[in-house]
């Protein structure tokens, strides 16, 4: 064997095939490609769909039709805001954390970080995918709730959109913090446990007003309680959500973002 073994130009690669022509792609195309792929992946992953759509659908129907938790009539008006908050938490926090944990394990974050994709787009792509799934959830769950007799206060809808965006930011930043720092298996366990605890004790299934005193105080300061209570207020009364839920969500988003920018690792 000698260096004369440099193969004569191989037939399968015509000369000039690889002539350098470097350059970064257009930001819009990069964003669409990354977010679109992550959105598709989430929608064809059975466990993710169970978490983001099936469980909220079952809870919406179950809590509306069965008298498991004491709620004012019409029950659907109290249940729906909680389920919408759950949907945001499932996608932006639990789903995002688990996906990021395994994405890191399989090296895709590192892979994308080695392309011309700017760092801010890498994060923006993930958040865009999250918002895409949240939009699908809001449409599906809202339509189903309407079938069950839900009639939200029309003046509260714009507030609801704002709260959902803030909730996505707070839960999304927490999800990125969790999935971006721990091992995939640990992330999976923590994200599911936190989801379950917040579901039952964080003001989602049981409204904050019906939780025992100290727990209610804690739940008010949690992103789950803030989002669920804020949505209950704006969607049932049409009035603004008040300052507390907004500040709680903004604070969680800010703290988690700050921590994530320092602690998240590519793999």
């Amino acid at each position: 064997m000698t260096s004369a073994m440099h193969s004569s130009p191989p037939d399968r690669f015509v000369p000039g095939t690889f002539t350098p022509r470097p350059g970064a792609g257009a930001p819009g195309r990069m964003l669409a490609a990354q977010a679109g792929t992550e959105l598709r992946l989430a929608l064809r992953n059975g466990e993710q769909v169970l978490l983001t759509l099936l469980i909220p659908v079952v809870l919406l129907v179950g809590l509306t039709l069965l008298d498991l938790v004491a709620l004012p009539e019409p029950r659907v008006d109290s249940v729906t805001p909680g389920v919408l908050a759950l949907a945001v938490m499932s996608t932006a926090f639990t789903g995002q954390a688990i996906a990021l944990g395994f994405d890191r394990r399989y090296g895709v974050i590192r892979r994308l970080a080695a392309t011309a994709l700017p760092r801010w787009l890498l994060v923006a792509g993930r958040l865009a995918a999250v918002l895409g799934i949240v939009a699908v959830q809001m449409v599906v769950l809202g339509a189903l709730a309407a079938v069950l007799g839900w009639r939200p206060a029309a003046t509260g809808l714009a507030w609801a959109v704002l709260l959902v965006l803030l909730g996505s930011a707070a839960f999304g930043a927490l999800g990125i913090l969790l999935g971006g720092t721990l091992r995939a298996e640990v992330t999976l366990a923590v994200a599911n446990v936190v989801w379950f605890v917040l579901l039952l004790a964080g003001g989602i299934v049981v409204p904050v007003s019906q939780l025992p005193g100290p727990l209610a105080a804690v739940a008010t300061a949690l992103p789950s309680g803030a989002l669920a209570e804020g949505l209950r207020t704006v969607l049932t009364t049409g009035a603004p959500p008040g300052l507390t839920p907004v500040l709680v969500l903004v604070a969680w988003a800010a703290v988690a973002t700050l921590a994530a920018t320092r602690l998240v690792r590519l793999r």
Binding site: R21, P22, G23, A24, G25, A33, T37, L112, T115, A116
Partner: peptide
């Protein structure tokens, strides 16, 4: 799909 994502990051991909 993966190759398409990476290709989208380049100006003149193969």
């Amino acid at each position: 799909e993966m190759l398409r994502v990476v290709a989208a990051c380049a100006a003149h991909p193969l």
